[in-house]
């Protein structure tokens, strides 16, 4: 197990997240995909910190974790808003940008 293995794993995780982001139609499911991607990024931080020394990477990971929590909170608030407007949470309903 070397650093590059961990990074490859993180890339794979990230790509899976992107796949979800592109295919999902439910906003909550999209949020889940975003979580996957964030998790992959976090993994890179921690791996770098552990394999190359120093604790900054892990501090960064903690911060990123907190940010992710914040993002989820705001994201869910938006989901509720979308649900109020359309009685559903399918993302293709939120296409006002086109109008």
């Amino acid at each position: 197990m070397t650093l590059s293995h961990v990074l490859l794993l993180a890339s794979a995780l990230f790509s899976v997240g992107v796949y979800g982001l592109l295919t999902r139609r439910q906003v909550v499911a999209i949020l889940l995909s975003v979580e996957l991607m964030a998790n992959a990024a976090n993994l890179v931080f921690v791996a770098m910190s552990r394999f190359r020394g120093g604790v900054s990477g892990q501090i960064f990971a903690i911060f990123a974790l907190a940010l992710t929590v914040a993002e989820v909170a705001v994201g869910l608030a938006l989901v509720i808003l979308l649900y109020r407007a359309h009685s559903d949470t399918r993302v293709d309903l939120a296409s006002e940008l086109k109008q």
């Binding site: 490859l8 890339s11 794979a12 990230f14 790509s15 899976v16 992107v18 796949y19 979800g20 982001l21 592109l22 295919t23 999902r24 139609r25 439910q26 909550v28 499911a29 399918r90």
Partner: peptide, 23 residues
């Protein structure tokens, strides 16, 4: 609770492309 998905092929191509580049 259904979690609908569409465009699987398109998403897969993009994801694989991304992974290849990252790798």
């Amino acid at each position: 609770v259904p979690a609908e998905s569409t465009g699987g092929v398109r998403g897969a191509i993009a994801a694989v492309l991304l992974f290849v580049v990252l790798a």
